[in-house]
Nucleic acid binder design. Structure first.
Lengths: 331, 331
DNA sequence: CGTTACCGAGAGAGCGATCTCAGGGCTGGT
DNA sequence: ACCAGCCCTGAGATCGCTCTCTCGGTAACG
């Protein structure tokens, strides 16, 4: 009742195990006639290679962990970031016949589990997506001598290749755009400051404001829509005269738009708004949102390529993708 | 430079491989002194058992696939269903030392990959969550002789144990509640009719309407907030006199509330509203939503237990959990 | 003191694949 | 006709672990 083995296939086809193995692995050095016999046997028996046995000798598993080191509430939130990364990483790796295994690592306990799982050789490599500074996983995993790459620059300095987008530059572009529009009092709704993206985008904002001799007006959100709405109300209270806001992500910008509307401010006449990410929803707000495009799919592809390079023993240097200003009607 | 093997641990501790193995697996028949020596060796070498080798002989992997057979847009939508199932299944299985491997099976191509992955023995069992009728996975997997359980009754009749909630009964309770409130024209916003939950909840609605001699008024959504808003507008157009709506899930109910407000109808004075699922957001709507509690965590736990029963060779019968009316202020 | 019982430890056979190496059969060149 | 060389195929080792079986040693009992 056990699943058929290669042995059984070989016996049925009247060849040796070695030959059957060659056929299974698509080697060309097999006579067509024998090849067909083996294929028929495989088909008749419904043979599928035992992955454990194969991994044992090849030292490969052809599966790759995507470790999402965030509380599930964020992973499965309105923000399409994680889902896009998961989906495009899967797609990208399918083309090279590798399977993505998604693992959530929210608590400290699950960190340990993830570490053990990876140390146990279940996967050939790890893609890490983790935005929080305190995260112990990047360094822990890089110690395991397993190929590891990261989506986004790890918050702790650790020597693993990563693919990032130019958060600082993007934020600078956004704010410079507002300056060029003649806006005088430019506020920002920053992201959480324990996330690298939140920090970098705030840095970009500060850089331009300093250079253009303006006062910075900062409220901090947590990248959710609701927090954007709250932060906007707060900003309006702090400085009713503000005439522009750079919001660190589009989701918060959607919330901010809502608050602006409730406060009776017209966008962009009274207040101009620039977001960050260029999520789908940014096209459908009222008015459509000027934003900085965050190339998630390309960045994911770059990360996957880094990992594949590591497999090949090639040098893998961090990649930082450029961002791009997308002008719509909110400025 | 290879990872240390049990052999190395045994050598360092001055014992045989078998004894080292006993210690690793927590067998008690080892003298404390030797045990400590082995543990020390493990620690010093940083030994972690090779999972492929272990699986090869034990025929177990201690990991379990959670196959989500839905387009990613739904999986990672506002609806907390999937995330809750994923999280609580992980939690539940951690207690028995098993790892959940999440696999998305959206396209036909990824179905094939998932099947191969599972047939290859990567996992000991499969938990399937799939709402669509046309889904070929339930039957495909059940043919593989791998233990399979399902979250929710599979749409195609196939002999795999499942844990479901009482969709028909819940819908009946909801509509009966509206009848008892003296509502005369009770409409429904149904879920997609290619999903079992969508079908069953519509059936429940129809059952009660038939028994109470009322006319049914149906609009169909797709379980998203937006579709609920659209469906509500449509219902108001179809029958401006309606005084109650049963909405097949809370997310659509949130959208419906929005449309009702825009149309100037007061809830519950003009129109009473009952949702389904009792998601967190239902508590925070204006007014808070009367709904039917869908016990997601319990249902997931029941599903996990079914799978564990299958592992033990115990009989595993489908489980249907009762739902419960939660009365808030929308009725 | 001898015998039985039992407990703890080691030897060795697998688990199911891959892969190296050697050898048999052909082809082709001389 | 002979031999070199190539192409296929098969034998057998190996990956790292578990688990059964065996055996040495000590305790218990008569």
């Amino acid at each position: 009742m056990r699943r058929p083995t290669l042995e059984a296939v070989a016996a049925r086809a009247g060849v040796s195990r070695a030959t059957a193995s060659r056929v299974v692995n698509g080697q060309t050095t097999v006579a067509p006639q024998i090849r067909d016999a083996v294929l028929r046997a495989i088909d008749e028996l419904g043979y599928v290679p035992n992955s454990a046995a194969r991994s044992l000798v090849t030292q490969r598993t052809d599966s790759i962990a995507l470790v999402v080191s965030e509380p599930p509430t964020r992973v499965f939130s309105e923000d399409p970031l994680f889902s896009t990364v998961i989906r495009s990483a899967s797609l990208e790796l399918e083309t090279v016949n590798k399977q993505v295994v998604l693992m959530l690592a929210s608590s400290a306990k699950s960190h340990a589990r993830v570490e053990r799982y990876i140390a146990g050789g279940h996967v050939d490599g790890v893609m890490l997506i983790s935005m929080h500074g305190a995260d112990p996983l990047p360094s822990a995993l890089s110690r395991l001598r397993v190929p590891v790459v990261s989506y986004g620059r790890p918050a702790v300095p650790v020597d693993i290749p990563y693919a990032d987008n130019d958060n600082v530059g993007g934020a600078e572009t956004a704010v410079r755009h507002l300056v060029e529009q003649g806006r005088r009092r430019i506020a920002t709704i920053a992201g959480p400051q324990d996330m690298i993206g939140g920090q970098d985008r705030l840095t970009g904002y500060r850089n331009v404001l300093r250079d253009s001799d303006r006062r910075s007006i900062v409220a901090v959100g947590d990248f959710t829509r609701e927090s954007g709405a709250v932060a906007m109300r707060q900003l309006l209270g702090d400085d009713p005269q503000l005439d522009a806001v750079f919001v660190a992500n589009d989701l918060m910008a959607v919330g901010a738009l809502q608050s602006l509307r409730q406060a009776g401010r017209r966008v962009p006449d009274d207040v101009a708004l620039v977001g960050f990410d260029d999520i789908e929803a940014a096209k459908y707000t009222e008015p459509p949102l000027t934003t900085i495009r965050h190339p998630v799919i390309e960045q994911t592809a770059a990360m996957v390529r880094l990992l594949l390079d590591l497999f090949e023993g090639l040098p893998a240097e961090p990649v930082v993708l450029p961002t791009e200003l997308v002008i719509r009607e909110s400025t």
